[in-house]
Design a protein around this nucleic acid. Structure first.
Length: 301
DNA sequence: GCGACAG
DNA sequence: ATCTTGTCGC
């Protein structure tokens, strides 16, 4: 799913002389949570003003931002040239000029349904683990992704790839998984630690679970901040159930562990604890460093 | 104004 | 996540 292309196709539907908002576009994608991602994708507009990003404003009719050498001034100029009046930083007659009638089939809604469907294939218990423990992480520069997977025996595999999906909370798998699957083609671990959540997710199917099911390997989610749930006595509770464990070592902030696929909470925690010399378990910490080095061109893919 | 929504 | 940042809704 190339969400960037889909999004620009939506933006092109905004007629001259009208405006739309980040939120309206997000709803047309199928989830209001994508509003900020809409701003990010507009800032990466590959073909302005043919893709009319200048016609997208904030939900209260104020102008929002504009990535252009001349800045917001250029946005105002473009809108005025199209007959949209701007009065002290706001679109005049905003309600009347607001375009929301997008032709769309709500791609994010379909992806939520896919998550729910794949979740049925997720295994909650421990499966036999044969092979090395590894950690995977992805670093980004614009629309390029740089992935690194580090094994317990020290081997490092690297990948460089264009991304076609922005970061949207609860859809991280659709951004990162293509990179991770490419890394897994080079070598498959016995169990994989992933930078993100497993079942600790609004639909119980985060990046770690998604990768586990699709690649058919045991996975563990390791997140640095909470996406969903509340912490009570080191347990992370989501609608009354324990979905993860908060591990705090030393005086620094802790990490949130949740099972991805083919593993229990207990086993997940046991494995992560083996590698806790820093805040992040060692294979993940190394993967993070290598992914950043690759991005900065300090390594060959 | 502030909190939210992994990375 | 990046790099100084184009949000929404209460």
């Amino acid at each position: 799913m190339d969400l960037y292309s889909y999004f620009y196709f939506l933006v092109k539907q905004i007629p001259q002389g009208m405006v739309s908002t980040y939120g309206s576009l997000a709803r047309a994608l199928g989830d209001i949570r994508a509003a900020r991602a809409c701003g990010v994708m507009l800032s990466q507009n590959p073909d302005p003003p043919n893709i009319p990003c200048h016609r997208v404003v904030m939900s209260d009719g104020s102008l929002g931002g504009f990535t252009h050498p001349e800045g917001l001034k250029k946005k105002i100029e473009l809108l005025r040239s199209e007959g949209v009046e701007i009065e002290n930083g706001r679109v005049k007659n905003f309600r009347k000029l607001l375009f929301e009638d997008f032709k769309t089939d709500f791609p994010l809604k379909k992806l939520r349904e896919e998550q729910k469907k794949l979740k049925k294939r997720m295994i909650a218990g421990d499966c036999p683990i044969h092979g090395q423990v590894a950690g995977v992480d992805v670093s980004y520069s614009g629309r390029m992704a740089y992935g690194a997977m580090v094994f317990d025996d020290g081997e490092v595999v690297l990948v460089r790839r264009k991304v076609d999906f922005p970061y949207i909370p609860s859809y991280l798998a659709y951004r990162e998984m293509p990179v991770i699957l490419e890394l897994l083609k080079k070598r498959r671990p016995g169990v994989l630690m992933v930078d993100g959540n497993g079942i600790l997710h609004p639909r119980g199917f985060g990046l770690a679970s998604h990768v586990g099911v699709v690649a058919n390997i045991p996975t563990i989610g390791v997140a640095k901040t909470l996406l969903v749930g509340m912490v009570m006595n080191n347990r992370v509770i989501v609608d009354g159930e324990i979905k993860g464990i908060y591990i705090k070592s030393g005086r620094k902030r802790g990490i949130y562990i949740s099972p991805g696929h083919c593993i229990t909470i207990e086993k997940s925690v046991e494995i992560v604890k083996r590698y806790l010399y820093h805040r992040n378990p060692e294979p993940l910490r190394k993967a993070h460093i290598y992914a950043n080095m690759l991005r900065r061109g300090e390594l060959e893919p």
